[in-house]
Design a protein around this nucleic acid. Sequence first.
DNA 1: GCTTTTTACGCACGACCGTGCTTTTCTGAG
DNA 2: CTCAGAAAAGCACGGTCGTGCGTAAAAAGC
Lengths: 187, 187
Amino acid sequence: MLDRAVEVARRVGLNGLTIGTLAEEAELSKSGLFGHFRSKEALQLQVLEHARARFEEFVAWPALRAPRGEPRLRALFDWWLAWDALPGGCPFVAAATEFDDRPGAVRDRLVRDERDLFEMIATVFRTGVAEGHFRDDADPDQFAQDFYGVILARHHTLRLLGDEQADNRARRAFEALIAAARATRSD
Amino acid sequence: MLDRAVEVARRVGLNGLTIGTLAEEAELSKSGLFGHFRSKEALQLQVLEHARARFEEFVAWPALRAPRGEPRLRALFDWWLAWDALPGGCPFVAAATEFDDRPGAVRDRLVRDERDLFEMIATVFRTGVAEGHFRDDADPDQFAQDFYGVILARHHTLRLLGDEQADNRARRAFEALIAAARATRSD
DNA sequence: GCTTTTTACGCACGACCGTGCTTTTCTGAG
DNA sequence: CTCAGAAAAGCACGGTCGTGCGTAAAAAGC
């Protein structure tokens, strides 16, 4: 049932995710479903938690099975693109723009999750530095923000504009990031 | 009054923008305000239209007063960052994630606006190519998507995560884009 | 000054929202 | 088989949503 909730939240956001429609989709009565979560906020939090678990199994774990360093970073990028292209797009992207101005437990949770996401990118990048794939004066946090920018722009261009070149451009942008971080000449 | 509506939409989105709260804010009765727009969808469209006008006067026109080519591109970037940092963030970013899965007139309008935005970035970049600032084999559409990625990542990192390094990283990323597009050696 | 058009208001409607309370139905342990 | 506890349903509540209608005030045209 939480799977369904995440799917709905992908499309209409965490606010658009309503107890009535979710109950209908689960073929349950409204109060029957409501009993599982004690409030709507609790539902939103559980949806977030579940989405995170799904992200980890769909993106993080597969990426971690790739060899340390650049290959792992490439795997992370590829899986992330696939995740983002699931119907409805990335639930975190939707939730982030929805809650960046609404204080509360949901926002707090979301901030924690996104921080972890950024930290994960930076960590994978650091393994690349440790492996000698990337220059050791490169800034992992800078790379994380750049990486996420490529993801977000592609998300935008693909989902809203429907531009079928979005993926190609994202891949080229990613290659440029990698090339710039390579441990070669200069500086 | 549309100014107010845009400000509200920045924070809570085009769906969260409700006729009741907007009427309250404008110190009008609900039906009094409703009379101005004939439906909620019409209100959303007008908000979008107004936001576009505000964007043009706040970002586009000032940028166009800068000298053609790279200076203009830099001005565009700077003004855009300032626009995005206005309270509530960029209304188009909020609306885009809200409506990328909701077909209808609002989405259509939004797609048109964002296409124009991308086209504008690409056009400014092309003047840079024409001026000899950038290599003439650079892809303006690629640059536009990369440019917007930097904006989006900064939007995300600044507004949700509250990272005060977001701006610095965005600027560095922009400089890297410029450097890569410069008309120098190789290829 | 009178008439016509615009503008705003009061009010009500049906729908859906989140959320409690009470009752029924199911389930599993003894 | 019985019976306690969990799960689901039924129902109702106060609230807000978008939207119409009839009317009163205000503005504009003559």
